[in-house]
Design a protein around this nucleic acid. Structure first.
Lengths: 165, 165
DNA sequence: CCTATTGCGGATATTTTATATCCATAATAG
DNA sequence: CTATTATGGATATAAAATATCCGCAATAGG
């Protein structure tokens, strides 16, 4: 069971966007440069976030990305679902129907007990991620950062964030 | 985030082994035939279960696989860990150190807040799987099965299970 | 001891998914 | 009108999952 890098990047991108002052946006290129990740691939993740309604993309000069709603209302699950999709990680192949003693369709009305156990575990996983809003991440990250770094970040944002009309 | 088929197969295999009478074992070939899955690949999963100490493999004539301990003491997490390994699904690439505003090593003493949130969610996922013993799965599956199917399975086991010395 | 059976480990092939890039197009500010 | 910026599709490359094969080791039973 693996989670793609895109999720990590998207999460860091959203944390950065959460630190943007009101009325500003960040172009994808600047965002990728800030995180030190490949720009074209990062762009794909940003598109996914945009399609899922997590961020708002503004085209054209002085465009860029900003959060679609307050950071308190965006969770790690929102970001994960946007990038990786909402399909369950356990895909039941209905093994119980196979082989010489396979179950008849009538015996398969309910989901397979094995699949049910995995799905229940996963729904807990999702609830845990849904309970982690961007604000909490920002707070934790801010607490660890040195004053010097916070100042550098603020300066970088001031320099790269666009002002929208 | 995806879980391989091997986990599903291994889980079904363990449920079947849990139904074996005392002192009997099932050859890998029979097991794969029962589940209707490719034998050589199933063999790999059984090897993984064996190495992890979930099942005991007996070589040679009249050999085969049996559970290494009572079904009540084997959980879905044991099976999953055996097949997929115990590595966390979220692999932190330490993105926070990248780019023009990257964090200094001193600021990275604690794990990144994003990675921490994923790891916490995953540990809940594991606890949920660890709370699902084979006995529970067997009970749920038995409840759904028709009397006819249960009888066919018992007959099949009687015919294919080896008796060890 | 001999033979048939059965699991083990390594090597390898095949398919699918993740990762990464590029380009033509559309939208927008100034 | 021009420079900028996101979008969607197509495509290339790398990595992982899926699947198979084979020679070896272990074991039961004759």
């Amino acid at each position: 069971m693996k989670i793609g890098k895109g999720v990590e990047w998207a999460a860091h991108a959203c944390v950065l966007l959460a630190a943007l002052p009101e009325g500003r946006a960040l172009p994808g290129e600047a965002l990728a440069a800030f995180l030190g990740v490949p720009q074209p691939y990062m762009a794909k993740q940003l598109q996914a976030l945009s399609r899922a309604g997590v961020v708002i993309a503004q085209r054209g000069a002085a465009g860029g990305y900003r959060l679609a709603r307050p950071a308190a209302e965006i969770s790690l699950w929102d970001v994960t679902a946007a990038v990786e999709g909402e399909a369950p990680s356990f895909r039941c192949a209905e093994v119980r129907r196979n082989g010489p003693c396979g179950a008849a369709p009538a015996e398969c009305a309910r989901p397979c007990a094995i699949a049910a156990a995995f799905h229940e575990a996963e729904s807990g996983y999702r609830r845990a991620l849904a309970a982690a809003p961007l604000t909490e991440l920002v707070a934790n990250i801010t607490r660890e950062a040195s004053a010097a770094r916070k100042q550098r970040i603020a300066a970088w944002i001031e320099q790269h964030a666009t002002k929208r009309a």
